[in-house]
Design a protein around this nucleic acid. Structure first.
Lengths: 210, 210, 210, 210
DNA sequence: CATGAATGAGGTTTCATTCAT
DNA sequence: GATGAATGAAACCTCATTCAT
């Protein structure tokens, strides 16, 4: 046991100081010296635990990103197997999508600090987010082709809808610090997206019939 | 006259080199030394033409931002005078908004390079964009209250719709290099937004009646 | 142990090089690059030990200034308690002042190099010296009012006498490198000051009687 | 004639801007660019009129320094011829000295701005002032030997008295902006100096008799 | 006379990183 | 595990000065 309850392991102290520094100043402007000073340690100590600046940054984000990755890949794996009767009234039966999205949202709130940092670092987050958008996009692509009965339409609209869907969750997360309040807003957002998607599908059908 | 057609004025050379550097590396990581080297000039020369790093950055962006500001302020000035019969079929009569948006889009393509740089520099662009979102938001707020017949609803949804509307144009601009192709996609996006907005309004009405 | 007696700690080498540079070129024109070159170190090393240019400058002067401040404040504290029978033959009983002044002089010689640097940097020294002059002035002010029996006289003369008294010690320090020789000259200077002060007091008395 | 009464010759404008800049920032920190900007001219113009930074600085000071030099040299030339009966009551018959000093003081006030600048630039003024002190010193030296009847005394005291005498005028000039008020204070200062000098001479006589 | 452009050297400061101890 | 020292490169910026026009 440590002599003092305020004692933390050096690594933990570094990580805490780094989170603060990275979030406040951004990755580039964050100073390792500053991190070490705030952790009451020297730079040498940091380099014992971490390879370099990127390493400590990744170390902070990896629990969050791993968890999200797990959720997403699980989701898309299960999706390929299901996908049966789409003859429903709603143009998109995205109840599974929503379930996953809510899970992701919960994970984001669980690691709120890290997630804010992540979203504040576009160089890192954009790649990750774009990947998720691409998954979403290919998913919608199949649905659209089935529901519209054609693939003769501008696929940009699908990319955009996918982007918006992901962005909607990010926007929610950034504007509402309370997790439950955020989740309560999800149905409205989904409602909006369904309304929009329905309209778009309608137009595609009209265009293909004329 | 210049000896050689490849000769450009030093200021122009600096600006071109700076655009490239700023876009590739971002404002913070852009190096004035590097800009000057690429422009075949010394750093002293840059400081003859520009006060400091910020100054050359602003110099690059100001034509774009000035033009957009002019468009937007003109738009919102005219809006305060009109706003009469809303008893139309479409849930939102945003034809004027769209006209302005398309004008803004045209301006963005006119200064495409600068606009990409601008959007790539969140520290600068986020403030500007958030302002436009706020304008849009207050505009939608009035419309929603009238069309829904109540203001007893979560205003976050309006903020989000406003955000999406602006974001839609930015997304379009970033993903489509051809101006006319981009503009051709606007109706689809508007269609989507109308469909979504309609759905949201419907729900608000139902909720307020029950 | 160091490999070589010529090895000094890097900080010491920096301080020595800085003393030289600051004294020769003055604070403003002194170059940190030049200091580091002369200390066989890089500028980064300097910034490990010192916050900035001011910091290394202050580091050099503070032992001197702290010692002098201690002497002066002790002197003025004790003075407020004494100050009893002024019915002495000498117009000014400044034996205590002289004692303090000699102590200050000894401190100056103890840190001769630093003191020369200090006096060579008017931006820094003038504030410090003016404070001491002000103390001296208020001291003389009381004495003059008592001895002259009036305060109807031009107080500028007191300010000037105070200035001269302080300046006398500085002049002595700057012109005589040997401490004991300098101190040997103090009585003559005091003698002169007493002669002058006596004359001035005489005149004030005459003026106030007429 | 100029088109406009506000038009000044370019040289004059430069000189006025330079006086301000040099006085406010000191010689080293003064910026030629800044001077030229304030004079609404370019650096090239400055270099048409003046060789370099030193040149414009000297140009500003030379009228003052020339006038003072003329006064001083005239004074010391006349002095070598006079100097006859010293069998007077006053230890030093310095009526001529005072007359010259007052003339110098008047010249200083005539060029007050330049003189403040001069005194604010120790690198320049100290040489000039030391020269005057040396003149004064050699003058006092002769007087002391005659009046004391010996030259067996510490000549430092003469150097110091000379320094103080010059310094007294500078101090007066710096602390009193009104010329007539300043001159009115001269007799008190002279009185003090005479009192002090008398005391010192007395001591020298006593020492040489014992 | 004067401009406007450009140089080149120098300034202070910050930083990630390394390494002997 | 951790320290403290040191590197070396690069950062932004300022300046007196020059010169073709």
């Amino acid at each position: 046991m440590s002599k003092n309850s305020k004692d933390q392991s050096a690594k933990l102290k570094l990580v805490e100081a780094a989170k603060k520094e990275f979030f406040e100043k951004g990755y580039e402007k964050a100073s390792l010296r500053s991190i070490c000073n705030n952790a009451d340690l020297t730079t040498g100590a940091l380099y014992f635990f971490f390879k370099d600046k990127k390493d400590i940054f990744n170390y902070i984000l990896s629990p969050l990103l791993d968890e999200i990755n797990t959720l997403i890949t699980a989701h898309y794996r299960s999706e390929q197997t299901s996908f049966s009767d789409v003859s429903v009234i709603l143009p998109t039966d995205n109840s599974e999508d929503i379930k996953t999205a809510v899970e992701v949202l919960r994970t984001m709130y669980k690691h709120r600090q890290e997630c804010l940092l992540f979203l504040n670092t576009p160089d890192v987050s954009s790649i990750f987010i774009n990947n998720i958008i691409k998954y979403t996009e290919s998913h919608y692509s199949s649905i659209f082709e089935i529901l519209a009965g054609t693939n003769q339409f501008d696929h940009y609209i699908i990319h955009w809808i996918s982007h918006m869907q992901i962005d909607a969750f990010i926007h929610l997360f950034l504007h509402e610090e309370n997790e439950d309040k955020a989740i309560a807003k999800v149905p409205d957002m989904v409602n909006f997206m369904i309304g929009g998607t329905y309209k778009v599908l309608e137009k595609i059908k009209n265009d293909s019939n004329s």
